[in-house]
Design a binder for these strands. Structure first.
Length: 469
RNA sequence: GGCCGGGUGGCAGAGAGGAUAUGCAGCGGCCUGCAAAGCCGUCUACGCCGGUUCGAAUCCGACCCCGGCCUCCA
């Protein structure tokens, strides 16, 4: 039984798809005018793991994650850089794909862009006007009549009269009520625009997600996700728009990622304390390895908990992941063979953890228990057990999308292509010293290797393996 | 001001009325020329004050701190 924490009710609930075994899920992706930052990474990795697990569990998942490619900030940035909207957004979509690839984030089944759904957006706005939930203003804007939607606030738990205090009307807006929000923006000269019944303009932010999600997944679908900061007003507005337009319940389960913090403060663009994914990836010569360490860092805490990012959180993840890879590498070197079946004891516990609102930290504790027993079985040369435990380990890590790299490569086993052979030379000298039983020299050479970041491991036959992680 | 989260051992981070989380670090042992890796064993916990209970880190109440939302943000 899979339980998911639903922000609509505030409770953990048993998950039941609307349509048999089929799960339809929509996640708010990014607005593409800058590089992906760690907060994006957390959402993308989090839902990637969730979707992977849903599939592992046998659900037939349709995963939609949108791209916002038209909005005020995109226009501003394009003007600043003196390039077209298309060039700018295409460029950052390219960067996003590269970053997510390194984080082992699989492509969603459908990745719609707002500008490809203008017709559906206009159609939904017309429906809302027809139903009395929206009205065009003289300046070419169309606004949503918030007070008209009786359930407004049901997701975020706010009530309209409390919101009134902070609500504001910008000088150029012509709202009937400060709480109303924009569905369509009349365009100013030199801004990109589309023809609409209300003149040249472009969509407001919230409407695109309502239009894209309902077009692709139907009026009523299973799961909608995103970062906590989208809960209000974005998701609240999506509900208001969609349910007013379709007269059907919009989404059954709302899921939100906890914030990412840096130095105990929320990371955000407005605070200018954000780190981009590529900055982090550049910290290691091996981008793939760094990507997986970052992914592991995210998975090491629960998706709803606040996560404090720091150098030590990455170091922590690196060492933990290293333990997994060392076991995998040892197995690969050992000559033990896969058993073709996994150990139900671990798989059961793993599923229990993941079934409890995708508790990845708890699931990882099962992974480590399995690693320990795998190591033990390899020491006692229990071949069948080792094979079975290895298969179990790979099944669990596969479901989480981790440990997918080549173990030797991750560990940097006898790989120092960049040092001109100096390491290899020292290792060879040390092997000779050990054969000559010149222990002081051997130890001195090992110290030199450690200074180069190299870990040496002696084999019983007098040779040594080494790695540079 | 209104509304949400959270305070767990040296660090990270789950859990949730009687339990060995897990990873890193520490300590003791096995292994090793010495190490490393691995294995075995082991020490540090549940913000503060009350209450409920046979029993509370876990439930209730007060308090103190921290973070967030109420405006663009994943």
């Amino acid at each position: 039984m899979l339980n998911i924490h639903n922000n609509l009710t505030g409770n953990k609930e048993e998950f039941k798809p609307i349509d048999g075994n089929r799960v339809r899920i929509y996640v708010c992706g990014m607005t593409v005018y800058d590089y992906c930052h760690l907060g994006h990474g957390r959402v993308m990795v989090g839902f990637d793991a969730i979707v992977r697990y849903l599939r592992y569990r046998g659900y037939e998942v349709t995963y939609v994650r949108n791209i916002t490619d038209i909005d005020d900030k995109i226009i501003t940035r394009a003007n600043e850089l003196g390039e077209s909207i298309e060039t700018l957004t295409d460029r950052f979509i390219g960067f996003m794909n590269e970053d997510l690839d390194v984080l082992s984030v699989l492509k969603p089944d459908i990745e719609p862009r707002a500008t490809e759904y203008i017709a559906q957006i206009i159609e939904m706005i017309e429906t809302l006007i027809g139903r009395g939930y929206a009205y065009p203003a003289e300046n070419g804007d169309v606004y949503y009549r918030t007070r008209q939607f009786k359930d407004y606030g049901k997701l975020s738990g706010t009530c309209l009269d409390e919101l009134q205090v902070g609500a504001r009307i910008e000088p150029d807006e012509m709202k009937d009520d400060p709480l109303d929000f924009v569905l369509w923006k009349g365009s100013k000269p030199h801004e990109p625009s589309w023809v609409s019944p209300w003149g040249q303009g472009r969509p407001g932010w919230h409407i695109e997600c309502s239009a894209m999600s309902t077009s692709l997944l139907g009026n009523h679908f299973d799961i909608h996700g995103g970062g906590m900061d989208l809960l209000f007003p974005h998701h609240e507005n999506e509900i208001a728009q969609s349910e007013a337009a379709t007269d059907e319940p919009f989404v059954n389960v709302w899921m939100h990622n906890g914030f990412l913090k840096i130095n105990t403060e929320k990371m955000s663009k407005s605070l200018k304390n954000f780190l981009t994914i590529r900055e982090i990836l550049a910290l290691d010569s091996n981008r793939q390895r760094m990507g997986e360490i970052l992914r592991f860092t995210f998975l090491l805490s629960h998706y709803r908990s606040p996560l404090n990012y720091s150098d030590s959180s990455m170091e922590n993840a690196k060492l933990a992941l290293k333990r997994i890879y060392l076991a995998i590498h040892k197995f690969e070197q050992s000559g033990f063979a896969s058993a073709g079946q996994s150990d139900a004891r671990y798989v059961e516990k793993f599923r229990q953890a993941m079934d409890d609102d995708f508790n990845t930290p708890e699931a990882l504790s099962v992974v480590f228990d399995c690693v320990r027993e795998l190591n033990r079985s390899m020491e006692t040369e229990s071949s069948a057990a080792a094979g079975r435990l290895f298969d179990t380990l790979m099944e669990m890590t596969g479901a989480l999308g981790i440990a997918s790299l080549d173990a030797a490569q991750f560990l940097g086993v006898e790989n120092a292509a960049d040092d001109g052979g100096a390491i290899r030379q020292l290792v060879v000298q040390r092997e000779q010293a050990r054969r000559d039983k010149k222990w002081a020299l051997a130890d001195d050479l090992r110290e030199q290797l450690v200074g180069l970041g190299v870990e040496v491991e002696d084999r019983p036959d007098g040779t040594s393996s080494w790695r540079k992680l």
